[in-house]
């Protein structure tokens, strides 16, 4: 079966999440091909996991001041600050992947690891859902399966600003000390830290190449129906307090 590759685009957080969900629905209905999508975040945003509560995870006043929207995902996992990164989504019938969630994480993360390898960065999969360079995290991902479709989205850090991230997340103020920021820096790395000459386009090309291997791939775009549906989902779900604050 042919796969569709959606080239890198920047969107607001609510639209990014809505596009993923719209594609999921269209694949479920047989109206879209399995899809790989690369995207960025404009403006920078925070997403929280499906089972998290915004009021517990995020300093909303700081986010408002910084112009950082907060959106709850349909996938599990934790709060993520999306700024200098490339995000991928892979959407396909769940029969394409093992039933066991962790095995499917490993397979999809394996593709990202191949892409990093093409960039000269030796990375490994770290269960449950991380990719690390040495022992430092460079990529995290989250997966859901709905309506017979697997959706996994994940981030690949281009650059990281730990101090800014902590200023937006709910972390005790005493923890946001220089010392604490330095200690967390030892746990996280980024593509630019690994290779400061790396360009965003190179990363996108490497991901496209890795995700295309062994597949018939066509460069595509969202259909008009997918876009319209995404816009509706954005307005009716991801831009609402009801969805974003807490699971009811």
């Amino acid at each position: 079966m042919k796969w569709r590759f959606l080239p890198f685009e920047m969107h607001a957080a609510a639209m990014n999440m809505a596009i993923d969900e719209s594609i999921l629905e269209h694949i479920s209905e047989g109206k879209a091909k399995p899809t790989v999508r690369l995207y960025g975040w404009n403006p920078a945003a925070i997403t929280i996991g499906n089972f998290q509560c915004r009021e517990d995870e995020v300093d909303m006043n700081a986010c408002k001041e910084a112009g950082v929207p907060v959106v709850r995902r349909i996938t599990g996992g934790g709060a993520v600050f999306h700024e200098h990164e490339i995000t991928y989504s892979i959407l396909a019938p769940e029969t394409f992947f093992p039933k066991h969630i962790q095995q499917s994480y490993q397979i999809i993360c394996g593709v990202v690891i191949e892409a990093l390898d093409k960039l000269g960065i030796a990375a490994q999969y770290r269960p449950i859902n991380d990719i690390v360079v040495g022992s430092r995290k460079i990529s995290g991902s989250a997966q859901t399966r709905r309506k017979g479709v697997l959706l996994q989205h994940g981030t690949i850090l281009l650059d990281v600003n730990i101090a800014k991230m902590f200023s937006l997340l709910t972390i005790s103020k005493e923890k946001i000390s220089d010392k604490y920021v330095q200690s967390v820096k030892k746990l996280v790395t980024s593509l630019l830290e690994q290779n400061e000459k790396l360009k965003e386009e190179q990363v996108i090309d490497a991901l496209m190449e890795a995700f295309s291997e062994g597949k018939q791939v066509e460069i595509g775009r969202l259909s008009k129906e997918e876009f319209t549906r995404a816009h509706y989902i954005m307005k009716s779900k991801y831009e609402t307090e009801e969805w974003n604050n807490c699971r009811k």
Binding site: G49, Q52, G76, I101, Q143, R146, R247
Partner: peptide
């Protein structure tokens, strides 16, 4: 009782 956190649960609706 409500459960929250950064765990994963499949399917999510089971929560």
């Amino acid at each position: 009782y409500t459960l929250q956190g950064d765990f994963f649960l499949h399917p999510e609706t089971a929560i």
